[in-house]
């Protein structure tokens, strides 16, 4: 099974990278740009045959390691049901 975990900074946390991109877009002439927030995602292939709730499992990956909940939120998504091989 393939899953995707999105990790993004919480709304109240400053995102200097997003801010820099915001400025860069604006200076390229895209004046309508109001706000940019950067985000990262992880594509994960895993064996789900012993898992009753794969989505919950992905959440565990996020909570245990991929996201730092002090500053980040996350969202999980199942991409494909079948094993890609």
């Amino acid at each position: 099974m393939k899953g995707r975990i999105y990790v993004f900074l919480k709304e109240e946390v400053l995102d200097p990278q997003g801010k820099a991109i915001e400025g860069a877009l604006s200076s390229l002439g895209f004046k309508e740009v109001k706000k940019v927030r950067a985000c990262k995602y992880f594509d994960i292939e895993f064996d789900d045959k012993d898992l009753s709730n794969p989505e919950k499992r992905l959440e565990e990956y996020a909570k245990k390691l991929l996201a730092n909940e002090v500053i980040e939120n996350f969202k999980v998504e199942i991409l494909t049901k079948q094993d890609s091989k």
Partner: peptide, 17 residues
């Protein structure tokens, strides 16, 4: 220490990037 929650908060990228 912050990541292990022995101390509160987090260290973000420097403002200069």
């Amino acid at each position: 220490l912050c990541e292990s929650e022995l101390l509160p908060g987090a260290l973000l990228r420097n403002k200069s990037l």
